[in-house]
Amino acid sequence: MICQSCGEHPATTKVKTIVNGRLTEYALCATCARRLGYATLLTGLDRGFGSVLSEFFSDENAEPEEECCPWCGASFEDIARTDKVGCAHCYEVFADRLLPIIQRLYGSDIHCGKMPGENLPQPQPQSQMVLMQEVLHQAVEQEKHERSTRLLQESLRRLGGGSSNDES
C-alpha cells in the first residue's frame, strides 16, 4: 500500500482522524507520519504494517515460545506480534526480554517523575532542554536567513513588475 499523503513511499502506519463528521483512516509512510505529527518512538523502526517489536527478535532462534504470563496468559510472542504488553505483570515475567527493548528505545533513562501517592518532583536539569536550545538557535538563524532571502525576492519581484498569476 502506498502512502496516501505523498503517494510515493510504501505506507507503514495507519492513523485515524475525523474528516467531515466521519471517522477516516489514512495509511502513511514513516516520513509523512513524522511530518504530520503522527510519529511515535516506534515509527522510525517500522518497516511495514504489524509488529515493530518482532523486528528486535527476527534474528533470534525461531523456536516456538512456551512461557506465558501466569496473570494474563500472554506469551512473549503475543507481545512481539502486537506491540502490546499483556498486563502489568508481563513487565516482570518478561523483564529479561522487555528491558533491553526499553533500553533501545529510551537509552539508559530511568523514570524520574511522579511516584504514586507522592507530590510531583521538582524540575531537574535534563537532556531534552539542551537539545531544545540547540535546535531553537538553529531555527532562529534559519529564519533570519529566510527572511532576508524573501525580502530580496520581493524587491526583485517589484522591480520585475510582479508575477503574472496574481494579476487581475
Binding site: 526499553i102 530511568i110 510531583l120 518532583p121 531534552q128
Partner: peptide, 8 residues
C-alpha cells in the same frame, strides 16, 4: 521516560 512531569 527519563523526564519529570514538570520538566516535560
Amino acid at each position: 521516560l527519563g523526564i519529570s512531569e514538570k520538566n516535560a
